[in-house]
């Protein structure tokens, strides 16, 4: 702390900057989102698989952002960032996933139209609509 600060530009987090990775991350994200847009606009598959596919593309785009554009790795100065990210991602998924799941179940049980998660159950429009 009292030791004179070494040149901040020699800090590993500054030195890890690299134009190639950044360009790759930028282009990859753009292409992936472009493909997702095309697939959606052209309706290349039924809604269910399409949603799955574009979600997959989104995840790949996020990975490109994290590892190419942001350059996250497990070197000494980044290890705690990686660890905390790995610990937080499940919370992200649990928060959204469990919420959506429980409300889908609730909607089905309260027979809210449009929530046809029960196979073979057809919903007629009710007074609710």
């Amino acid at each position: 702390m009292s030791a004179p600060d070494p040149d901040p530009l020699h800090h590993p987090e500054v030195q890890e900057a690299g134009i190639i990775g950044y360009t790759a991350g930028f282009l990859a994200t753009l292409v992936l989102l472009g493909v997702a847009l095309l697939m959606t606009e052209l309706h290349v598959m039924p809604p269910g698989p399409l949603l799955g596919s574009i979600s997959g593309l989104a995840i790949i785009a996020l990975l490109c952002q994290t590892f190419l554009s942001f350059g996250l790795d497990i070197t000494r100065h980044n290890i705690w960032k990686s660890v905390s990210l790995v610990l937080t991602v499940p919370l992200f998924i649990l928060t959204i996933g469990l919420t959506v799941w429980m409300f889908q179940q609730l909607d089905a049980l309260t027979m809210i139209p449009g929530s046809n998660i029960m196979p073979g159950m057809t919903m007629q429009p009710t007074m609710l609509q």
Binding site: P90, L91, L94, M102, Q105, L106
Partner: peptide, 18 residues
């Protein structure tokens, strides 16, 4: 602690599975 919160409102009636 992140997967138990619904026990505060079991009576919402989200169904047996949930």
């Amino acid at each position: 602690s992140w997967v138990v919160w619904l026990h505060h409102f079991f009576t919402m009636g989200a169904g047996p599975l949930v």
